[in-house]
Design a protein around this nucleic acid. Structure first.
Lengths: 156, 156
DNA sequence: GGCTTGCCTAGAGTGCGCTCAAGGTATTTA
DNA sequence: TAAATACCTTGAGCGCACTCTAGGCAAGCC
């Protein structure tokens, strides 16, 4: 994943995020810098619908097109999708990612704001990790109880 | 929080959970075992709408009523709400919590299934924690980059 | 030429987890 | 007695993040 991002709407919400696909994973065909949407689907695990939607809402930078209008994703685009996947995984709202993408498109003078956004998000993630670890304790306790107090493990 | 739960419907989904309220917190008025809905709102931070909705979908056990039909929550009910809050915090889908509540209502012979449900959820949470920690690395990396490569921290 | 495949667009629909609206009753307070 | 307050119910609505539908074009293959 490069550090120099590539992308391009905004908003905000609040509830617990549901688990998203584990992560990217599949190997990149081999840097041809010209991937069709279905190759990107295979690589990212996202649906073509979702990829087009990401573009519509401004979460992606401009994507190249063939003369007949088909999308051709570049390696940089895949890098960006990798990063987006990470952010999603940590439960960042799509609107925030879009905001970040906008900042990237706006250029160098937005470094500070991007930094702030990432730092705030990192805090968020850290808090979340702490909460989860905390709750794991409660789960352990309950589980121990059930494992012990059970009418006898094999009793039906 | 007691270990002997109290609650009761069912379903399933899959995406990343959004952050939910930090946690219960506010002190329990003092065990009167007869709390009005607005007291429970103050205690849990949930809205009255949500509390009634939880009941409708079978996430709560039977809640006592006054002769005029107003709800009166017991300490046990609050304990259950504490536990539910924990589960929500860890992103357990409402449908799963409802399933768990059903099992509790069904009685002792469901211990095994409850145990399995909790164990599976714990695995889920552990996986999620691992993913988050992982992604924190990526965030740290990006943040270090921005903090360093910035056109100079005070440059505008 | 006809069929298949892979892609395109605009816009509607879905599932989850609430949240709100409308209309009503009982108790307390002025 | 009138008004305010706190609660009730049923059912519709909302925001988010997708996901699907319908209709269409272009290139490849027999």
């Amino acid at each position: 994943m490069t550090v120099t991002d590539t992308p391009g709407a905004t908003g905000r919400a609040r509830t617990v995020p549901k688990p998203v696909r584990a992560t990217i994973g599949r190997p990149r065909p081999q840097a041809r810098d010209q991937y069709t949407i279905s190759e990107v689907v295979a690589y990212t695990g996202l649906s073509a619908h979702t990829l087009r939607w990401y573009e519509r809402i401004g979460l992606m930078p401009h994507i190249d097109r063939t003369h007949t209008g088909q999308r051709r994703y570049s390696d940089q685009d895949l890098d960006w999708l990798d990063f987006v996947a990470k952010l999603r995984l940590t439960g960042m709202p799509v609107a925030d990612m879009v905001r970040y993408a906008e900042l990237v498109r706006e250029g160098g003078h937005t470094y500070r704001e991007r930094l702030e956004l990432l730092v705030a998000h990192r805090e968020d993630v850290r808090r979340r990790v702490a909460e989860l670890r905390d709750t794991l304790g409660v789960l352990d306790f309950k589980i121990d109880f059930y494992a012990g107090a059970e009418p006898a493990p094999e009793r039906h």
